[in-house]
Write a protein that binds this DNA or RNA. Structure first.
Lengths: 249, 249
DNA sequence: GCCACTATTATCGTATACGATTTCGTACAT
DNA sequence: ATGTACGAAATCGTATACGATAATAGTGGC
């Protein structure tokens, strides 16, 4: 059966936000969207409230909805949140992965590698999602899984409109994927998996921060036995964006 | 000004779920709730969709909404998710806490201690929330903060209906609070704070699991220098509820 | 020329109405 | 007795309509 009007509205609006047709700050007028969809305002309202709950649009009583400002900080905050959640999800899923999952993930990573040569960032990005979904998909905690899913949703909505890729990062990323797979194959303890998965994402985050001239996110997890990252000293300059230091005079 | 009807509906329904007036599985009929509120079904729909987004109610097309089943697993999954998120939030907020925050938190913890003697679990629970809010409230990542808030919301909605407290846990909890405050006062590195905050909640989770005869959650973080917990060995019996072992024959 | 105040307009919030869909009970056939 | 087909009732989904609210423009006074 055809999806409900409110579902259609939801998908349309999300698409337009993701594709950049509605840029941040764009005013979402119920009537206009309803007209575009050929339906009344009621289902559109519902769709917008759903998008609000996911953080894609901001809503104000008696004023209306606008596409949420995805400035740098919001993007980075989402990335940081994902690092935490996806790390946990991957750790929880790790004991459940079988050989097939790992070889499949390895295959995807090979594909990603080939995308590097072919300069196909679109496909690279899609494969990246697929790779990680494969790894955390079996996470037995559906709540965490749901939050990770939403996080990726937000990311997709933002990436195209504001952010591009960091030069060297893609290649590193592929290497880290292999490292993570190595750990999984070796049956490494859960917390080391979590550390590797989280730090993988934190590295991406910090690549962005470095380009912006900001200090790195402090949320690394110490790898219990192996190479610790350089960011886990006690006194990095606090980052106003992500650590929000009190700048008391 | 009076809150909007849809806001009123939202609060009413949430209250009824939290207080247990609507128990899990209860069928939420738009018309009935609308009548009870003296409004039409439209704002009630909106409220229910919001509650759906927060995981408090389940919704099915053309069928209706029911209060989400809060069986043991859901409760435990939420608790596990909170352990991860709140750990991260507390870690991120740690560098921003000043002396006032810490003494205030210490004071709240003294209050909790007195609640122990007075057998006042209501108040104890409220103080517990206040204590942790004080610690993670300054977390500069609003997204994480939001997720933590929602998590506590879900907890409040569930606790009363299904779960009570674990006997010895409250007293341990107070002690762990003091330990956490000690770390904060000493300016301990971020990841150690995260470990302590997460493990505090994981301990609660595992107290429940122990009562239920289930193996503990594996999501502990290794404390880099001090007393590791006993649950971080490599091969705990996997927990069907939280780790979801593949029971292949 | 600039500020305060009013009128206008665009848009939101919600009530009502009605078609669409599911669910449940009943009758019938096997 | 059990399963199936049909019909009635309950409930949902959405269109339309209209009052309420806030943004905006226009007017007058200083």
């Amino acid at each position: 059966m055809a999806p409900s009007k409110s579902e259609q509205a939801y998908e349309l609006i999300q698409d337009k936000i993701v594709s950049g047709a509605y840029s941040p700050g764009y005013r979402l007028v119920l009537g206009s969207i309803a007209a575009e969809l050929g339906c009344s305002t009621v289902p559109v309202r519902e769709a917008i409230r759903r998008l609000e709950a996911e953080g894609l649009v901001a809503f104000e009583r008696n004023v209306g909805a606008t596409v949420a400002n995805v400035d740098a900080t919001l993007y980075l905050h989402t990335l940081q949140t994902l690092s935490v959640l996806e790390g946990a999800a991957t750790a929880l899923a790790a004991p459940l992965l079988d050989a097939d999952d790992l070889t499949e993930a390895r295959r995807i990573n090979r594909d990603m590698e080939s995308c590097l040569q072919a300069f196909d960032p679109q496909r690279f990005s899609r494969l990246n999602v697929a790779f990680h979904e494969r790894l955390y998909g079996l996470c037995p905690n559906p709540h965490i899984l749901d939050l990770v899913q939403r996080g990726w949703n937000r990311m997709r909505a933002m990436r195209s409109s504001t952010f591009s890729t960091v030069p060297g990062r893609a290649r590193e990323s592929v290497a880290e994927h292999d490292g993570l797979l190595d750990l999984l194959e070796a049956g490494t303890p859960v917390h080391a998996i979590e550390a590797a998965a989280r730090d993988h994402r934190t590295n991406t985050l910090n690549a962005y921060l470095a380009v912006a001239g900001l200090p790195p996110s402090p949320l690394y997890l110490p790898l219990p036995d192996a190479t610790p990252h350089d960011a886990d000293t006690t006194d990095p300059t606090p980052d106003p964006a992500l650590r929000g230091r009190k700048d008391t005079p």
